[in-house]
Structure formats: C-alpha cells, structure tokens
Amino acid sequence: MTIWYLTDLVGTSVFAISGALSALSKKMYHDLFGIFFIGFLTAIGGGTLRDIIMGAHPIAWIRDPNYLIVIIISVIIAVLCRRWWLGTLRRPLLIFDTIGIGIYTILGMQKALNAGVNNWAAMLLGVISALFGGVIRDTLVNDLPLIFDRQLYATACLAGAVLYQIGWSLNLDPNLNFIVSAGVITLVRLTAIRKGWALPRINN
C-alpha cells in the first residue's frame, strides 16, 4: 500500500462519515440502508464522476473492494457514535466535509496529472472530485448544496488546486506539496466558516 492509496481510503472514510452524519441530521435513525446509501454516494460520487470524465476504467471502488469495506465501517462508526454529536451535529459534519474536500481536491488533481490531463483540466477535475459527492449528499437530504453557499467553499478548493499546480510545476516534493495544498484548502474553508467570509454578491 502506498501513502497515496491510504490517503485515498482516508478521504473515502471521511466523506462516508460526512454523508452518514448528514442522513442522521434528518432523523433517519430507522433507515439503516438510507444512511449507508447516502454515505456511499457521498464517498464515491466525486471520484466516480472524475474517472468517467477521464475514461479511467475500471473505476477504483469497482476494482478494489477495500473502498466498500472502508465505507461500511465508516458508516457504522458514524451510527454508533451518533449520540456524541446529537445537538451539535452541524459542527462535526462541516469538519468532516472540510477535511474531505481538502484531501480529495489534491488526490483528484494527482490522478488527473498522472494520466496526462492538461493543467487547467486537472484543477477542475480535482475540484469535481472534492465537491460532487457533497452535492449528491445535500440534494438527497433536501439541503442546499454547500457549493451554492456564499461562504468560501469551491473557492477554497480552487485556491488549493492552484497552489498544488504551482508546486507540481516547480517539482516540489510530492508529499510536502500535498500536505501544504490540502492544508490550505482546509484552513481557508474552516476560517471562512468561523469568520463568515463570503464572495461578494452580484446585484441585479
């Protein structure tokens, strides 16, 4: 197992927990399949769309059963630990989502760049990897997808993607480049939540 493979599994776990917590926030306590389904789609949605666009087959979670195992375990953990988050569920949901978008933006970019995709497309594919699972999650639980929130969300992913691309062009150590770029995404997003940072509104 490489460090990137393990990181991918961690990102899968984080998004699966995010999806399960989102389902639990809608009081879906008696619908275990629904909780798993939302966690599953949140975890694999962005990466699946990225691989379909790139024509990368077979898709990772279809080829490798470890992804499904990680998702199942992560959803079970979220359900078993749900009492810890009752009443304050929004905060852990946002934290797990923020960690997930940081990891998946850069992993998505790495896979795209290694496949020979041009730099601009690689950045967009990285953002798609990070955000599409969350769009599916929020749509299924009847919430406004966070990507449409005025607080910095997609912008944070794009900032990290640009930073990673600069490091890639300068032949920066891949591990350091990953940590710094994913960290910037996480930091910008968490700060935007805390400080209420938002893009300017377009007036009619």
Rank of each mutant, 00 (worst) to 15 (best):
V135I: 12
P174T: 06
T12H: 14
I52C: 03
M109I: 12
R137Q: 09
N114E: 14
D173M: 11
S169V: 04
D173P: 05
I185C: 00
G34A: 09
S129L: 02
A16R: 05
G100P: 07
R150C: 01
I202V: 10
Y104H: 14
V162L: 15
I185L: 00
G39A: 04
M109F: 08
H57S: 10
M123N: 08
Q110L: 05
T98Y: 02
F15W: 14
S181D: 02
L9R: 10
I103V: 07
G196Q: 03
T105H: 05
G39L: 07
M109K: 00
C81F: 14
T2R: 08
A112R: 04
L80Q: 12
A115H: 02
T186R: 04
A156V: 13
I166N: 01
F37W: 11
F40A: 12
I71W: 01
Y153C: 03
T98M: 00
R83I: 11
A78S: 13
T186H: 01
R150L: 03
V184I: 05
I72L: 08
G46E: 03
L6E: 06
S74D: 01
L21T: 04
I35P: 15
V79T: 09
Q110E: 01
P145S: 12
W61T: 08
L187V: 15
V127Q: 11
A121N: 09
W61K: 07
G45P: 07
R194Y: 12
D97E: 14
W120A: 15
T98W: 01
L49V: 14
C157H: 05
G133E: 05
D97T: 11
I128G: 05
H57V: 00
M123K: 09
T139D: 00
L68D: 00
A78N: 09
R194N: 14
A192L: 13
A159G: 04
G108F: 04
Y29H: 12
Y67L: 07
F148K: 02
W84K: 15
L125Y: 02
V70C: 11
D143W: 09
N204L: 13
K27M: 08
G45Y: 09
L93P: 06
W84E: 12
A23R: 04
T48W: 05
I53Q: 00
G108Y: 02
L124T: 13
L9Y: 13
N177I: 12
V79P: 04
